[in-house]
Design a protein around this nucleic acid. Structure first.
Length: 548
RNA sequence: GCCCUCGUAGUUCAAUGGAUAGAACUGCGCUCUUCUAAGGCGUUAAUGUAGGUUCGAUUCCUACCGAGGGCACCA
């Protein structure tokens, strides 16, 4: 950034001090300029000059900076920079003409594998999977928009006790016609309350692994395929396309081999094979049970190896709920010793859990809310509004609005915190919401369409005094880069909300197609706004319908 | 007991060590003869407690209080 560099160089002339890094930020209030620095406040004491006086000296030494219209000293000693109209008009022009407006190249050439969603065949698609999907997809897109070559991975548990429970329930005719998620619920309950059933399920579990029973094989194969197909339908609605699918059935043996090959890393304890995490300030975890079965820890080691063999990557990210944070640290500590090269590329991103406002725990069918039922409820609710819209396909629009509503709720807050999900709030589709952003985008599209009809051709005019809307639009690329650097979609969500609010407010005051000579410029600006919202929504993984 | 997250308006969330701590929902009052009122405008209301570091702390450090999660054969 030229401003930061100039500031850094000239501050020495002004105060005879050297600074390694100058703070330069976007003031929250646009009145305070496009950029602002607090260096004078920071170094006033060291130099022995009052902050404002030092700021004045620095400003005097700065001279002219390309693209900056004026520099002011304000408040206690802040140095505020106001960009020149031409520099801001350039941002509008870029946003109006460039498809990739807002992208950056900070990760160019980097290969990144992102694993997320991770549902289990034979079980329901839970809220947690929905959260992991929304966050993982958005992080993948943020990295992509920053120039990285991103591959999406999904790791699913297709073997284990949960599978046996569902298969047993079907085999014994305990469920008929229900979903595989229902079968799991029935099997799980029987496992906990019925001794005979428990024994049978354990047997089924062994048979699933050994594939020794043809009836069980048939139920298993049918169920696995149906579950995976069903998940695919959900991914289609959610807008995710995975490049790689990994299954626990592939990672178990691999993991066991790795553990057995490293007796110096793992030790035996009470018949089980464990990793003593205490040596790394963590806790002990079991990798192989006393029955010789691999636990999830071991499977994760196998998964890491399998990922590295399947595709090349510089970084491998796994997105999970926060409850697995400590677990992951132990696995990573063990991995550093078993697969050091892979371990050095592994990163874990965790998110909070979704909780529900009291008394709103059940779905429309009266059951516990799953990720799927939540989505279906929202689609239903959105249909009423969609039917009154201008959309050609109301059902398709209802789906897009529902996805926006739910993803926005997840992506609007810092990912470390739990999310209190209030259905009423999400279903209202108003205010601080995904549909609000979509609506602003649809409005911008409508103006573009009308401009075309009237034959008004967009043309940016660098001499027009820039509005707050333009100055905020100029910050978009930096907002993307900032969010990508922190792997925090909510930082972009916040920017987009504020940007959309600014646009809506501007829209209420300004008539774009008023037949005046300023129309072409305003049409260009509206198109720049449209692309900013479109690209921003794309990064969040939220569809941007052109008509609502 | 130890470890990890986290405590901000009545509620759900923001705030890159900076300027008057921002929104949304709720309440009340305006606003469609003008490009979409899923919109806009106005109005009340908050940093858990006690110290520390700093020119400046919601943010960093320490202690306490409170919430959620994790801590051996589940995933």
């Amino acid at each position: 950034m030229t401003i930061a560099n100039t500031l850094k160089q000239k501050i020495a002339d002004a105060a005879s001090i050297s600074v390694e890094e100058v703070s330069l930020e976007h003031p929250a209030d646009l009145k305070n300029g496009d950029y602002s620095s607090g260096v004078a406040l920071q170094y006033a004491k060291q130099v022995g000059v009052a902050p404002r006086a030092l700021a004045e000296k620095i400003v005097a030494a700065l001279g002219t900076i390309a693209g900056v219209a004026r520099v002011e000293v304000a408040g206690a000693g802040f140095i505020n920079f106001y960009l020149a109209p031409a520099a801001l008009a350039e941002a509008v022009e870029t946003a109006h003409t460039e498809d990739m407006w807002g992208s950056n190249v900070t990760l160019a050439g980097k290969k990144i594998l992102v694993e997320y969603t991770d549902p289990n065949p034979f079980k329901e698609f839970h809220i947690g999977h929905l959260m992991s999907n929304a966050i993982g997809e958005s992080i993948a897109r943020l990295l992509q928009f920053s120039g990285a070559e991103v591959k999406r991975a999904n790791y699913q548990g297709d073997v284990g006790p949960h599978v046996a429970k569902a298969v047993w329930a079907v085999k014994t005719g305990k469920v008929a016609g229900g979903s595989w998620g229902d079968a799991y619920i029935v099997g799980n309950k029987a496992y906990e309350t019925d001794e005979v059933a428990k024994k049978e399920i354990d047997e089924v579990n062994a048979q699933v692994y050994s594939r020794s029973d043809s009836l069980i094989n048939s139920i298993y194969d049918t169920g696995r395929e149906a579950s995976l197909k069903h998940f695919e339908d959900l991914y289609e609605i959610l807008g995710t396309k995975f490049d790689h699918y990994f299954f626990e059935s592939e990672t178990a043996q691999r993991g066991l081999k790795l553990v057995r090959a490293h007796p110096e890393v793992f030790e035996e304890s009470d018949g089980a094979v464990v990793y003593k995490g205490e040596q790394d300030g963590l806790h002990t975890r079991v990798f192989v049970t006393s029955k010789g079965l691999p636990t999830y820890e071991t499977k994760d080691l196998g998964l890491a190896e399998l990922k590295a063999e399947t595709c090349e990557f510089d970084t491998s990210i796994t997105v999970t709920a926060h409850e697995q944070s400590d677990y992951f640290k132990v696995v990573l500590a063990a991995m550093k010793k078993v697969l050091p090269e892979v371990a050095s590329k592994v990163q874990h991103i965790s998110h909070g859990m979704m909780r529900f406002a009291e008394g709103k725990m059940s779905s429309r069918t009266g059951n516990v809310i799953t990720g799927e039922s939540l989505l279906l409820d929202l689609i239903d609710a959105a249909k009423i509004r969609a039917a009154e819209s201008r959309a050609d396909d109301a059902d398709a629009l209802a789906q897009q609005i529902a996805v926006a509503a739910i993803k926005y709720q997840i992506l609007k807050q810092a990912s470390g915190k739990d999310i209190i999900f209030d259905r009423e709030r999400a279903l209202s589709l108003e205010g601080d919401s995904g549909p609000y952003l979509q609506y602003a985008h649809a409005r911008a599209c409508a103006i573009g369409e009308k401009a075309k009809e009237q034959g008004v051709v967009a043309a940016t005019d660098a001499s027009v005094e820039p509005s707050d809307l333009v100055r905020f639009l100029h910050r978009f690329p930096e907002a993307v880069e900032y969010a990508a650097a922190h792997r925090e979609p909510h930082l972009l969500t916040n920017y987009l909300l504020e940007f959309a609010a600014l646009f809506n407010s501007w829209y209420a005051q300004v008539q774009v197609l008023d037949g005046s000579t300023s129309s072409p410029h305003k049409v260009a600006l509206v198109d720049a706004v449209r692309r900013t919202l479109k690209n921003g929504l794309w990064i969040l993984g939220i569809p941007a319908p052109e008509r609502m």
